[in-house]
Design a protein around this nucleic acid. Structure first.
Lengths: 351, 351
DNA sequence: AACACGATGGCAACCGGTTCCCATGCGGAG
DNA sequence: CTCCGCATGGGAACCGGTTGCCATCGTGTT
């Protein structure tokens, strides 16, 4: 009889109006809730809405200026535990603030990133959050600055989360965590155990996160009047496999060291496996430390000494400050602190 | 002079038209690309577009029927490694197919889930992917079925990914992986090593994923004519902490067993730590196996024997089949296979 | 009984695009 | 030289909502 069920969801506000015997404006007002409508009319409208299983088209509402705001966030790889935690923080806070949350993984492809940001500008996203370290080249700054400007001119906002800042004047919000400070504290802890030759399993040498951690490594040495052997600075990337490979090579080449500091826990995990494969005991034969304090760090054997980074908090802060920005509170640049978590993988130097 | 820079991004197609001295339709056509436009006009328009830094409002395009389609996916917790991999698969495939990807974490709250699905219906999302096991109660079926119907009537699509199916007739796409089969194979492998008393660290007892794995555990025993001691079936959840706690308790209570099968690798990781804390050697004193084959499984010590689940592929398939559904290819119900990965944590029973 | 006023709800304009349909103007063919 | 047709671009309707403004109607007041 009625075509009620077959294409119900496709119905428009005018269909509802027709069925309720009122005008579209009235339906809109009933659904809006504030405008005074007689209860008889309201009932008829609500009934039509239910019959038709009507839901207002969010996109149409958006264009009329009453939509659910959206926020986007872009990262290299969502499977990385630390990124996943940032994602979690972002999503949670976005939800709390009533925002929808778009996500894009770039797999490190700059082109993807640029295109996605452009799409977000078209979507009129309230903010775009770029997550994760990067090479800090002039090209990077130029490109990122352009994205920031174009978003800003569209009334949106670029947030750099754990990414190199752009220098003064760029319309960006920057939230970082202290890589250098964390690495400094961690390496200082290792050196305090008497180790003199500590191997550093770093990331890509142009990656700012990696650089910061490396600077901390060096600074901690200098603070003790030590001058680390450059041969002990190895570079790979932030993956488990890189840690495994680098460690194996170091072992094969007969590099001498009594402790290893990895640039991330993932790297440390790979390195640990390589050490075990070589029959070495950790921390008996060699000490090992990581960075990030991913949940798994506790379950490595021995439990990994590492640096805790408040990733989830980072994500939340990113959206909060980006969205909460007002003329009185313009650009912000936050630097979150970290702290080392002492577990079992670093021991005093024997002998 | 010109107000070019200050509010550039806010410009509409009519602003561009005015600046180029043409009509809005012409601008639309130039940007659309197909309609014939003289090259002089095209140049003028493009120049105006560049000057104003104009980008068409994606929401307005969407309502006019030419938008970028969107797809949503909903999970409990994005920080779980297996979920994160599904998320990765979903996002990748969505991007490949030109879809935007909305994400929502529910933290297990059913209300969130329902509300979010309703929002997605309003957003006219092409598909909504629900990820992760759940209790399979009548209430679940009822609720989920309602979501499926309402999405279907709006021309959208519900996908259940690793979730209990709804029975025949519901407009859903279901993609599962074989929990029972995987657990069967894994436990069979453990039993084949001579173990007789194998402890099972399960998940919530009403959770379908947990149930499937438990069924596999039981079936493998029966296939060998064994009747497992019910005291060896422990229930917690899929977290690392549950594994740790359960294992500690089992040890304290003096439960007898020579092998442990955990319902997930996370649980296994916690259990492994508890075993180590108790001074037990794995696999010397007790064997241990996990489930999921998360990347970290290799770096536990000993490397964890586990069941590989193609999570990323699962995510991709979910979007592909949901989007590729046509009248000729209606509902699908796929069951992906798994395989056990033998590493070092399970050893033949000594003696 | 006439009048004022508040409560309701419809009309139409608008948000920012797309596209159908038609008018114009140009060039080439007969 | 006239006629025809195609290339080009404008006008207006439409997508699905919201909202300002105004007409109407019922009721309370004097």
């Amino acid at each position: 009889m009625t075509r009620k069920s077959e294409d119900a969801g496709r119905s428009t506000i005018r269909d509802v109006a027709a069925r309720a015997g009122v005008s579209a404006s009235t339906v809109s007002r009933v659904l809006g809730g504030v405008y005074p409508v007689s209860s008889a009319t309201r009932t008829r409208v609500m009934r039509a809405v239910r019959d038709l299983d009507y839901v207002a088209d969010a996109r149409a509402k958006a264009i009329a200026g009453v939509g659910t705001p959206t926020l986007a966030f872009v990262l290299e790889d969502i499977t990385g535990p630390s990124f996943a935690h940032m994602a979690y923080g972002v999503e949670r806070e976005a939800r709390r603030l009533g925002h929808l949350c778009l996500v894009c993984t770039t797999e490190g492809d700059v082109q993807h990133e640029v295109e996605f940001v452009e799409m977000m500008r078209a979507q009129r996203a309230a903010a775009v959050i770029l997550v994760g370290g990067s090479a800090d080249t002039p090209e990077y700054r130029e490109r990122t600055r352009r994205m920031a400007d174009s978003l800003a001119s569209a009334g949106s906002r670029l947030v750099l989360c754990g990414r190199p800042p752009l220098g003064p004047g760029a319309p960006v919000t920057v939230i970082e965590y202290d890589n250098e400070g964390g690495a400094y504290a961690l390496v200082a802890h290792v050196l305090a155990q008497g180790h003199q030759r500590v191997l550093f399993l770093g990331g890509a040498s142009d990656h700012t996160t990696a650089q910061g951690r490396e600077r901390g490594y060096l600074a901690a040495h200098r603070a003790r009047g030590l001058d680390p052997d450059p041969a002990l600075l190895l570079h790979g990337d932030f993956t488990r496999d890189a840690g495994h490979r680098l460690m194996r090579e170091a072992l094969k080449e007969g590099l001498e060291f009594t402790a290893v500091v990895a640039a991330t826990d993932m790297v440390a995990a790979g390195a640990l496996t390589a050490l075990h494969e070589a029959g070495l005991d950790v921390p008996g034969d060699v000490s090992l430390a990581g960075y990030d304090d991913i949940p798994f760090a506790r379950d490595l054997h021995p439990a990994l000494t590492t640096v805790h980074v408040p990733y989830e908090e980072l994500g939340r802060l990113a959206v909060r400050t980006a969205l909460g920005r007002t003329p009185e509170h313009p650009d912000e640049h936050l630097l979150l602190g970290t702290h080392v978590v002492v577990r079992d993988s670093v021991a005093p130097l024997a002998e």
